[in-house]
């Protein structure tokens, strides 16, 4: 099964990385969570309610909505913080990418273990910019807010296209689809992974290619 893969690019200041990533990941988790299931029998269940709350960013002119679940918030913050620390390290390259992957588990046939199959992957390519003064920071604060608004619209466009979503499972299989560890909400199984790497230089590559072509043409 091919996972629905989306890539979004962000140019942010070092101190804005946490909020920029969290605002989009929380928006995704808000859409990809349900209320808690309460099974009456194996395939009949009642669904709880997702509360929501507005969150204002400190370093970006932006407000987003997230699930009212402190545990889910703590969990996603913990996952994202590793990436933020890595990209803000003194000798770190100025770009990296962090992905939120929704997956489902499938029982493997003996002797194989359970396998995880991603069905939707959201990758954020983050470029860290450095600014010279407070005036530039003020402008950037608004610019990043507008940029996040555009990214959020793309997210909602995509999520409302109704691509593949795992079907609600029977009670015995619920842990193969949803993360049931949270007491108040029930997100689809998800994980965060990241890489921090030096950016490739396309202009150099292009120049070398051109040189080779010219040489061959001679």
């Amino acid at each position: 099964m091919n996972a629905n893969t989306q890539v979004l690019e962000l140019n942010v200041e070092g101190r804005q990385v946490d909020e920029a990533v969290l605002s989009l990941f929380h928006t995704l988790l808000f859409h990809r969570s349900t209320g808690k299931f309460h099974y009456k029998n194996d395939n009949t269940y009642a669904v709880g309610t997702i509360g929501f709350q507005d969150v204002d960013c400190d370093f970006i002119d932006f407000t987003y909505v997230r699930c009212s679940s402190e545990q889910l918030d703590r969990s996603i913050r913990r996952e994202v913080s590793g990436f933020c620390e890595a990209i803000r390290a003194p000798d770190a390259p100025p770009s990296g990418q962090v992905a939120l992957e929704f997956y489902q588990r499938k029982r493997g046939r003996w002797p194989f273990a359970t396998e995880s199959i991603p069905w939707e992957v959201w990758t954020l390519r983050v470029n860290v910019v450095s600014l010279n003064n407070e005036h530039e920071r003020q402008i950037w604060r608004e610019k990043v807010g507008e940029s996040l608004g555009e990214r959020l619209l793309r997210i909602t466009d995509t999520l409302n296209r109704h691509d593949y979503i795992p079907s609600p499972p029977n009670q015995s299989d619920i842990d193969y689809i949803y993360d049931t560890n949270y007491p108040d909400v029930q997100p689809f199984l998800f994980k965060v992974n990241y890489t921090v790497s030096a950016p490739s230089n396309p202009s150099t590559t292009t120049t070398i290619k051109k040189l080779l072509k010219d040489t061959l043409a001679l």
């Binding site: 509360g51 929501f52 709350q53 507005d54 108040d184």
Partner: peptide
């Protein structure tokens, strides 16, 4: 600012 609580089905 909106802030509503999550609820279980019960």
């Amino acid at each position: 600012k909106a802030h509503t609580r999550s609820k279980s089905p019960v």
